[in-house]
Design a protein around this nucleic acid. Structure first.
Lengths: 206, 206
DNA sequence: AACAGATTGGACTGTCAAGTCCAATCTCGT
DNA sequence: ACGAGATTGGACTTGACAGTCCAATCTGTT
């Protein structure tokens, strides 16, 4: 699955450059919309380099991109995502997502969701890789909600895993509609509904 | 935008055959994953026919497919969708969606959502066409919820349009996750959460 | 029947993309 | 410094795809 691991620091730089640039291109134009020549042009590399580091060709490169894209999303949100354990934090998270969409002019949607939608049907390996990403994401949210429950902010019968899954679904659907309508309203409404649902499990009425 | 309108019944049959078969192919393999030669093979038609009925080439064919796909979704759900105005009807709708996913082995997701995700970024016309589809869909649900409110089943401060939008977002996100994980759980959880949110606006507690 | 226009078959072109190959150059350990 | 192996440049092959073109056939009308 993993291709040629670069042996020298120069090789590592090149490989990383390729993956990063491809991730950008895939976010902008989609996976099938980006050719290896596009990648070549964007990175100033040659065909042989692409196949040297990714002997499996485009499939393998896309797998690396999926992992990188996941890493990026989590890196960007880590401070938020790791402390998603209070009502204020949830609201901040909601606002952050919406602000980002506004900044992107509602384009692009979720990098992970888009790749999943595009590739799930025709590449089983990528599909399960992306399913894994979603699971990780869910577990971040779940952890925060579990902390809130342990702290007595959520009722004991609230199920953090289920609530987290519902929240991610709302997020993904909201992003898809926002991307399609070029309006922030869907993501706002979707997240508000999801958070209201979570709040309906609050220990004390809010 | 509309291509050559067929003049004879033979022409209409051919054009319809092309659109229907393409819709199937696009659902299975995605829009960029279906070539005009695939369409040719599936329909037993020739290149000249494709361009005779769709002078704009693939773009125009895809636009026709998007409209057809929307029509299909609504046709299949019309009886349900037009009477989505009671708690029982909402539950039946939920169960129907889930049963369909199970039957499809969790593959494919929503035909409209998938096309939107794939094409929104690189074809503005298609994007707004699909946004229109979502809006129509939303209005069906909205109408049912408004009826429930008028009938006194929903509180007066419940906003049918917003609730409908949140529901569609949950549906789309749930379908995406179901398609990615190959499990019905995401769509179940997403729809349950959406309906619980709607129920939280019930006039009398349920 | 005969004509006009609709419809059809399928060969052909040009472009682009994936993937192969090999020779040249660089890097690192010794 | 120097050799082995890593890295790189870029030409080349092969195939797929969108789109063009024109001659042949069919259909509805008079």
């Amino acid at each position: 699955m993993d291709g040629n691991v670069p042996m020298t620091s120069r090789g590592r730089r090149t490989r990383a450059k390729i993956v990063d640039a491809t991730a950008d291109l895939v976010f902008e134009r989609g996976a099938t919309g980006t050719s290896l020549d596009d990648v070549r042009a964007a990175t100033g590399t040659s065909k042989s380099q692409l196949f040297h580091y990714f002997p499996g060709g485009k499939r393998e490169l896309l797998a690396a991109v999926a992992e990188r894209q996941t890493e990026r999303v989590f890196d960007a949100q880590r401070p938020t995502l790791e402390k998603l354990d209070s009502w204020a934090a949830l609201r901040r998270w909601r606002n952050g997502v919406i602000a980002l969409q506004r900044q992107l002019h509602c384009a692009g949607g979720c990098p992970i969701g888009s790749m999943a939608n595009e590739l799930a049907e025709h590449d089983p390996q990528l599909r399960s890789l992306l399913a894994e990403s979603f699971a990780t994401w869910q577990s971040y949210i779940e952890r925060g909600l579990a902390a809130m429950r342990d702290r007595g902010q959520l009722r004991r019968d609230a199920d953090p895993a289920t609530l987290a899954l519902a929240t991610i679904a709302a997020l993904q659907g909201g992003l898809l509609l926002t991307k399609t309508t070029r309006t922030t309203r869907p993501i706002e409404v979707a997240l508000d509904a999801a958070l209201a649902h979570v709040r309906s499990f609050a220990a004390s009425p809010r």
